[in-house]
Design a binder for these strands. Structure first.
Lengths: 294, 294
DNA sequence: AGGAGCTATAGACCATGTCTATGAACAACA
DNA sequence: TGTTGTTCATAGACATGGTCTATAGCTCCT
């Protein structure tokens, strides 16, 4: 008599109404006819309302059953759509992948993976959010991105960081400084030349500044630029010696438009790290992407 | 791993998402927290998708969980509305009652019950469908009306007929024929006067025609009219002697604007019958109305 | 009259969802 | 830095309730 408590009954009701037959509904639901009969009775008793006319050819909705059906049909359709959507998300036919990182890492490191991923799963929308390392970390914690790609090291107990490829920063110059091509410079000799650095307080810039400091030389750039592309471009045009990631100028080094300036000290390598939230489940898309990168 | 099979889980999911807490969802659903935990796990396993982030303050939807929620929320709201609607139908706060019958029965027999019913259940819409007895029966079989009010007898194995009040048809005349007031006429004497009958081939007209026939007199009306009101009106104006239902002219008989013409044969009484479909459940409204009439 | 549909009912069974009890992780606070 | 009070997860026991088989009753059709 009291309001029923089992939404499962609506599924049975839906199919009984839709097929006009308890027997057929049973077939659709992989049940036996008595089970369907029982379920419908349950629902009717719970409302205190008869929902179907029973006749020898099957069942048909009463006036009140038809009213119920008008609601339940919509409801069931929504559930079907939801289930289809979940299946699509699961197969990666649908969904989105939100990545945070710097523009240069997107371009020089992540791009091939992104292309690959997009080709394999064209239904997944890609959202790339660029920002500084702290910004990326904040995005990650706010749940605005699924993963972040930054330079190591990252020390944050809430994050899990997987080390990816190693990068080597170095100084490069163009034809204008051809005399340095076969030289090995000390740090103070390098400082005789105009140095071009990335203007933002990037992790890489801080590292190299500290290195010079540790030898007692202050590293003061002649020129500061806002993008890695400009670092490369300025060095090619002979405006100075740029501090860049070697892997990001592979093309220029090969074609000879830039050459690496040899130093008598070793510059420390850095690693690219992929950050995710520790103890938080990854979306299907994100975890598939992680696997691709590894 | 395969698609879940239990819509009950969506109700749990809905409340977990809505309250942001498995513990609170359990409270709403009158379950324990482990049961809710188990249900959510079921759902997640069935999709192979994590739906919630668990943290120490409760749970929050993952990207994919939020997508599921957008569907399920609508679905659950529809179910709630459906349940409210069913409760309203059950209390007779809502619904409709569809009755078939003749205009004269509506007006002279059913009206007080309809008024009463409408006052008691103002939320129920009344639909009155008039037609001949065969039409009413057809409507009933097509499910277009809940019950029919007609004159007995009805012989149809698909119908269940409950006999209600008895009606007595009779001949009435107005002041123009005052000389008949205290007379007792035989049938052939009556035929000397102009007779007014209902024009449609009603059950009542067929019955009286047969009666005359059985005595060897052909009953040929001077005037045929299309409504009971006109039968009364024409008799009052002195256009002839009308064959009407005595109960429907109670007022006119009392005030003296009509009088009953006495005959030396007894005219057979008829009964009003309320028809419903045999072995078909009545709507709540219809069965309440039946009870009111009894 | 027999057969082939349909739904309803009865009774047995056991799977599944629920419970209690407990653990583990985290946050707030003294 | 414990303590306390949250949260959710897990394990294991239990019993409810949905499902089954078997059967009956009914209508329609041949």
């Amino acid at each position: 008599m009291s309001m029923n408590n089992n939404y499962e009954l609506y599924k049975v009701f839906y199919w009984a109404a839709k097929t006009g037959s308890l027997t057929q509904a049973a077939r659709v639901l992989y049940l036996t006819q008595p089970s369907v009969s029982y379920a419908i009775k349950q629902l009717e008793d719970s409302f205190g309302i008869t929902l179907f006319y029973r006749n020898s050819k099957g069942v048909s909705l009463t006036q009140e059953g038809a009213i119920l059906y008008s609601y339940i049909e919509q409801s069931q359709i929504l559930i079907s759509l939801a289930e289809e959507k979940m299946a699509a998300l699961k197969n990666l036919d649908s969904g989105e992948l939100r990545i945070g990182g710097s523009d240069s890492l997107f371009k020089h490191y992540l791009l091939p993976y992104l292309e690959d991923f997009h080709q394999q799963y064209p239904g997944i929308k890609l959202h790339l959010n660029h920002g500084t390392t702290p910004e990326i970390i904040a995005y990650l914690k706010e749940g605005r991105i699924d993963l972040g790609v930054v330079r190591m090291p990252i020390a944050d107990s809430l994050l899990e960081v997987r080390e990816s490829i190693q990068l080597q920063d170095c100084f490069v110059a163009g034809g204008r400084y051809a005399e340095l091509k076969d030289a090995v410079l000390s740090l103070d000799m390098l400082l005789q030349y105009p140095v071009i650095l990335f203007s933002r307080n990037s992790r890489a810039r801080m590292a190299i500044t500290e290195l010079f400091q540790s030898y007692g030389y202050p590293l003061k750039p002649e020129i500061e630029v806002g993008s890695v592309d400009l670092l490369i471009e300025f060095a090619r045009k002979g405006l100075g010696i740029s501090y860049v990631t070697r892997e990001f100028v592979a093309k220029e080094l090969e074609e000879g438009s830039l050459f690496e300036v040899q130093l008598d000290v070793e510059l420390p390598p850095t690693h690219v790290g992929i950050m995710i939230m520790r103890n938080m489940p990854l979306s299907t898309a994100a975890s598939r992407f992680m696997k691709l990168v590894e």
